[in-house]
C-alpha cells in the first residue's frame, strides 16, 4: 500500500502553491500558461477524488440499459453503436437519465464552473 498523502492531496498542494505564491509574480503569455497548468492540476485532483464513484454508477447504469456485462469502455462503445444504429434513442427508458447523469459527472471533473453545468447541477426537480 502506498503511503499518504494521496495523489489528489499532492496535486492540490502543488496547485495551491502555484496559484497563491507563483502566479502573482508572472504575467503575459507565461502567466496564461501557468493558469492553464494550475487548472490542469485542479482537474487531476477532482478526478482522483470523485471520478471513481461516478464511474462505478455509470457502469451499473450501462449494464442495466444494455443488459450486458463488460468494461466501461466496452459498454460505452456498445451504447454508442446502439444510438448510431437507431436501436436506442431518447424514447428508450433510462437513456436520457443515463446520458444526463454521465455528462453531469464528467463536467463535475472537467469544468465545474461551466455556466451550463452550474445551472443544470443546481436544478432540484430531479426530472432528468
Amino acid at each position: 500500500m502506498q503511503d499518504e498523502p494521496t495523489p489528489a492531496e499532492l496535486a492540490k498542494a502543488v496547485a495551491d502553491f502555484l496559484r497563491n505564491d507563483i502566479a502573482p509574480l508572472i504575467s503575459g503569455h507565461q502567466g496564461f500558461k501557468l493558469r492553464v497548468g494550475i487548472n490542469a492540476l485542479d482537474l487531476v485532483a477532482r478526478q482522483l477524488t470523485s471520478a471513481e464513484q461516478g464511474e462505478a454508477a455509470e457502469l451499473a447504469r450501462l449494464k442495466a440499459l444494455l443488459a450486458a456485462d463488460g468494461s466501461l469502455s466496452d459498454l460505452n462503445r456498445a451504447l454508442a453503436d446502439k444510438i448510431a444504429s437507431g436501436a436506442m434513442d431518447l424514447s428508450t427508458p433510462g437513456l436520457k437519465e443515463h446520458l444526463w447523469q454521465t455528462t453531469l459527472d464528467k463536467l463535475a471533473v472537467d469544468q465545474p464552473n461551466y455556466a451550463s453545468y452550474r445551472r443544470e447541477a443546481g436544478r432540484t426537480d430531479g426530472d432528468a
Partner: peptide, 26 residues
C-alpha cells in the same frame, strides 16, 4: 502542448450543451 490537452477536456462542455438542446430536462 498543455493548452491543447486541456481543450480536450472541454469536449464535455459541448455534451451538456447538446443535451440542453436535444434532451432538455423537465
Amino acid at each position: 502542448s498543455m493548452e491543447r490537452a486541456m481543450i480536450g477536456r472541454r469536449a464535455s462542455e459541448t455534451e451538456i450543451d447538446l443535451l440542453r438542446l436535444l434532451a432538455p430536462r423537465g
